[in-house]
């Protein structure tokens, strides 16, 4: 029982971090970055590759995290900013972020080859025995990092000027820019944080999986589902969605059957969508407002 809970929370934290990466970007720019999973892949594969070249683990991890962060920003400038500049409410970013995801994936397949690469096992080799459950140090680290990510995000958002301006931009970028908020800087920041969180998730999940150029889709979709369970409006809620998805997948696996984890989370999401359309942790209805505003702004903009 405890084992199921802890394993579920560990996996859920990974999903949650990816979901947060999606949500932070969405929070500021109202864009779903479909290349988020690929950023996770980049950090795993770069670490694996650099360590293979003989770099120490910590250096590989550091470079990989920087790379995924920078790549996040590059995605913003190449695939998102031009599209939003043309029409802030168009959905063309769906195509451009997906396109860049394909480019990243295929490029890494060319550089590293399509086959899987071993990832340094590091802290995952050290088991910690608890009464009724066994965890590894890596898994404990994962839980801690997940908690810190949520706490850090919420602290910055609520307690600092930077965060409060971010909230204003999130609500209405046009009004926010009139009192001096630099919307572009915030968008760059959001994509950087998104890239960093996705990279972090990669580093944390690396030891239980392998470096492979096609990993992005797998974790991208899990993170996306977590995002929907938690609710897309608030990054902290996205982490909650990840935890729920993780625990329920493992529980379904343990108590129903191995393949139950295939369908159980999706049936759950469908229930969530039908019963609590804005996600289980969402309190407000900012999404509804967003879409109302969308129709009024695109149409009667000059009122």
């Amino acid at each position: 029982m405890l084992q199921v809970l802890l394993s579920g929370l560990t996996v859920g934290t990974i999903y949650g971090l990816v979901a947060m990466a999606f949500a932070v970007v969405f929070y500021v720019t109202k864009v779903v970055n479909f290349a988020t999973g690929q950023l996770l892949m980049v950090s795993i594969l770069l670490t694996a590759g650099l360590v293979r070249l003989g770099l120490p683990d910590w250096l590989g991890v550091g470079i990989a995290l920087i790379a995924s962060t920078v790549l996040g920003v590059i995605i913003y400038f190449v695939a998102v900013r031009p599209v939003l500049k043309f029409d802030r409410f168009s959905f063309a970013w769906l195509v451009s972020t997906l396109g860049i995801a394909i480019v990243i994936q295929a490029t890494f397949a060319i550089i590293f080859g399509p086959a899987s690469q071993p990832f340094p096992r590091g802290l995952h080799q050290i088991p910690v025995h608890l009464p009724g459950a066994t965890l590894t140090v890596q898994e404990i680290l994962t839980l801690v990092v997940g908690a810190l990510a949520v706490l850090g995000w919420e602290l910055v958002r609520r307690k600092t000027l930077v965060g409060k301006l971010g909230m204003a931009i999130s609500t209405d970028p046009e009004i926010a820019s009139t009192f001096g908020a630099n919307v572009t800087a915030y968008a760059v920041g959001a994509f950087a944080i998104g890239g960093f969180l996705a990279g972090l998730a990669g580093i944390l999940v690396g030891p239980i999986t392998y470096g492979n150029p096609y990993l992005g889709d797998t974790y991208g979709i899990s993170g996306f589902i977590a995002l929907m369970i938690g609710g897309i409006q608030r990054p902290a809620a996205a982490m909650g969605g990840g935890l729920i998805l993780g625990v329920l997948s493992i529980a379904a696996n343990s108590y129903i059957g191995a393949q139950a984890s295939d369908w159980f989370p999706f049936v759950l999401v469908l229930l969530v969508l039908l019963l609590a359309p804005n996600g289980v942790f969402a309190s407000g209805d900012s999404l509804r407002k967003l879409f109302r505003r969308r129709s009024s702004l695109t149409v009667g903009g000059r009122a």
Partner: peptide, 20 residues
């Protein structure tokens, strides 16, 4: 085939960025 994928993805980006 790998290069083909790169081109395919790049076409997405280029079309949408330059001709939204």
């Amino acid at each position: 085939p790998f290069l083909q994928e790169v081109v395919f993805g790049a076409v997405f980006v280029i079309v949408v960025v330059f001709f939204p």
